[in-house]
């Protein structure tokens, strides 16, 4: 089989911001769509990961454990071909993705030059310099409680810029990467209500579940609004840092939720009175389990956008 061009996409975010959960929800999200995009593992261990994680989210109803090692998955997004006017037959497009999911600690500012942190940074940089797609996860709840999103951004970002400059990969003054900034945990009542107060909710009419959504144009506004409540107030700098280092047309904001909202069983529609999709676990009082079926929101869109951008640039690593 002809070796398809592979695109490297790296997940970037603080520990517990939902990187592994987002990947776990990817195949469920694709199954929820009615176009025929699908995801297939390109080696046995990557497809094993897809099946395990999907069953963990749907039947096991539990969140993935904190990842301890930097994982690399080889997947292929297969979907409908480009529908141009002149195209007579429909061909399939296939985007080869190499997803890199590093534990959040890799991005943390290293306290002192401990050997391990050095090694972890090397490992991380090796991936980031190769990849041209980045999924940056901004966890508003963590930002509200701890406020260290900027710490997990500027360290690795400067190191990345240094390495790219050294390898002369800058494109007219900015990094060549395409970056999808995902605001996660949209299903948390505090985030949903913030969006509602700012009147950023625009329901998607043909969505039979009538989930509240934040359009891509408003997502940037919601990001700014959520940064304002940061515990250390350093969140505004995240926006500026992103604008400085990435081209304006290569940044896109998405408001995402890996587990989505709880749907009323009978009406299968969103119910403003009862939408929390988490239920406390009796056995271990503090534990939270996923309550109902999972309806990921905006989990596939960033991947597709990144895939298409990378394919367009013909950049294959």
């Amino acid at each position: 089989m002809a070796e398809t061009p592979r695109h490297h996409i790296a997940m970037w975010g603080a520990p517990g911001s939902g990187k592994t959960t987002l990947l776990a929800a990817l195949s469920v999200a694709l199954n929820r769509r009615d176009d025929d995009w699908k995801i297939v593992g390109q080696n046995p261990e990557s497809s094993a990961y897809l099946t395990d994680m999907t069953s963990a989210l749907t039947s096991g109803k539990e969140f993935p454990e904190a990842s301890t090692a930097l994982e690399t998955y080889q997947w292929a997004l297969i979907g409908p071909g480009p529908t141009g006017l002149f195209r007579r037959q429909r061909t399939s497009t296939m985007i080869g993705l190499t997803m890199v999911d590093a534990p959040g600690g890799h991005f943390a500012p290293s306290k002192g030059r401990t050997g391990g942190a050095e090694e972890r940074q090397e490992e991380l940089m090796a991936n980031l310099t190769q990849s041209r797609g980045i999924v940056f996860l901004f966890d508003p709840i963590r930002e509200f409680e701890v406020g260290d999103a900027y710490d997990h951004l500027h360290g690795p970002l400067n190191r990345l810029a240094e390495k790219m400059l050294e390898a002369d990969q800058f494109e007219n003054g900015k990094l060549p990467h395409n970056i999808a900034v995902c605001i996660t945990k949209f299903d948390d009542p505090r985030v949903l209500q913030t969006a509602q107060k700012q009147r950023l909710l625009s329901p998607d009419l043909d969505d039979k579940h009538q989930f509240p959504r934040v359009a891509v144009e408003d997502a940037r506004e919601l990001f700014r609004e959520l940064s304002r409540v940061s515990a250390t107030g350093s969140a505004e700098m995240v926006m500026n840092a992103l604008d400085k280092f990435f081209h304006r047309d290569r940044i896109r904001f998405y408001v995402t939720s890996s587990i989505g909202f709880y749907l009323d069983q009978q009406t299968e529609t969103f119910d403003w009175n009862d939408y929390l999709n988490l239920v406390p676990d009796e056995a271990d009082k503090a534990a939270l389990r996923i309550r109902g079926p999972v309806y990921p929101i905006n989990v596939v869109e960033p991947m597709l956008w990144l895939g298409e951008c990378l394919a367009k640039q013909g950049r294959s690593r």
Partner: peptide
Amino acid sequence: YNDYEVLEHSGGLGLEIFDEI
């Protein structure tokens, strides 16, 4: 809120060796 780290260790070796391994 952070990632896994070396909580405590014996005095014989330095923290950087434990952390790197």
